[in-house]
Deep mutational scan, measured.
Amino acid sequence: TEYKLVVVGAGGVGKSALTIQLIQNHFVDEYDPTIEDSYRKQVVIDGETCLLDILDTAGQEEYSAMRDQYMRTGEGFLCVFAINNTKSFEDIHQYREQIKRVKDSDDVPMVLVGNKCDLAARTVESRQAQDLARSYGIPYIETSAKTRQGVEDAFYTLVREIRQH
Score class of each variant (00 low, 15 high):
T1L: 09
V6N: 10
V8R: 05
V8N: 04
V8L: 01
V8S: 01
G9K: 03
G9D: 01
G9L: 01
A10N: 10
A10W: 06
A10L: 12
A10Q: 01
G11F: 14
V13M: 13
K15A: 02
K15Y: 00
L18F: 14
I20K: 00
I20F: 00
Q21N: 14
L22I: 12
I23Y: 13
I23R: 10
I23K: 15
I23P: 00
Q24K: 00
Q24L: 01
N25V: 04
H26Y: 08
V28Y: 07
D29C: 03
E30S: 07
E30N: 03
D32P: 02
D32G: 07
P33A: 14
T34G: 01
I35V: 10
I35E: 06
E36S: 00
E36A: 03
E36T: 00
D37Q: 01
D37I: 00
S38R: 00
S38T: 06
S38Q: 01
R40L: 00
K41G: 11
K41V: 10
Q42C: 02
Q42S: 08
Q42L: 02
V43F: 01
V43Q: 02
V43H: 13
I45F: 06
D46Q: 02
D46A: 08
G47H: 04
G47R: 06
C50D: 09
C50S: 03
C50F: 03
D53I: 09
I54S: 05
I54K: 00
D56G: 02
D56Y: 01
T57H: 11
A58Q: 14
A58E: 14
A58C: 14
G59Q: 07
Q60K: 15
E61M: 15
E61R: 14
E62I: 02
A65W: 09
A65L: 06
R67I: 14
R67V: 13
D68E: 07
Q69Y: 05
Q69D: 07
Y70D: 14
Y70E: 11
Y70F: 13
M71E: 12
M71F: 01
M71G: 04
R72H: 12
T73H: 11
T73G: 10
G74P: 12
G74C: 12
E75L: 05
G76S: 02
G76M: 11
F77A: 03
C79I: 05
C79N: 04
V80C: 10
V80W: 00
F81W: 11
F81I: 02
A82K: 08
I83H: 09
I83C: 11
I83S: 09
I83V: 03
N84C: 05
N85R: 03
N85A: 04
T86L: 10
K87E: 00
S88K: 10
S88R: 04
S88A: 06
F89N: 00
I92Y: 11
I92V: 08
H93S: 06
Q94C: 04
Q94G: 06
Q94N: 12
Y95D: 08
Y95K: 07
E97G: 05
E97C: 07
E97W: 00
Q98V: 08
I99G: 01
K100T: 04
R101E: 04
K103N: 03
S105D: 10
S105C: 07
S105F: 05
D106Q: 05
D106Y: 02
D107L: 02
D107C: 13
D107N: 04
V108D: 03
P109M: 12
P109T: 02
L112I: 13
V113F: 06
V113H: 10
V113D: 01
G114W: 06
N115E: 06
N115Q: 13
K116H: 15
D118M: 04
L119E: 15
L119V: 12
A120T: 11
A120I: 13
R122V: 12
R122Q: 13
R122I: 08
V124R: 11
R127M: 14
Q128W: 13
A129P: 08
Q130I: 04
D131T: 12
D131A: 12
D131E: 13
L132W: 13
A133E: 13
A133Q: 04
A133N: 11
S135A: 13
S135P: 12
Y136Q: 11
Y136F: 11
Y136A: 09
G137R: 11
G137W: 00
P139D: 13
Y140Q: 07
I141S: 10
E142W: 09
E142K: 07
T143S: 11
T143A: 12
S144T: 14
A145C: 14
K146C: 14
K146L: 13
K146I: 14
K146F: 14
K146R: 11
T147D: 14
T147L: 08
T147K: 09
T147N: 13
T147P: 15
R148T: 14
R148W: 15
Q149A: 06
G150E: 15
E152H: 06
E152K: 10
A154Q: 05
F155Q: 01
F155L: 15
F155Y: 07
Y156T: 14
T157E: 13
L158E: 06
L158C: 06
R160E: 06
R160I: 07
R160N: 13
E161A: 13
I162E: 11
I162F: 09
H165Y: 12
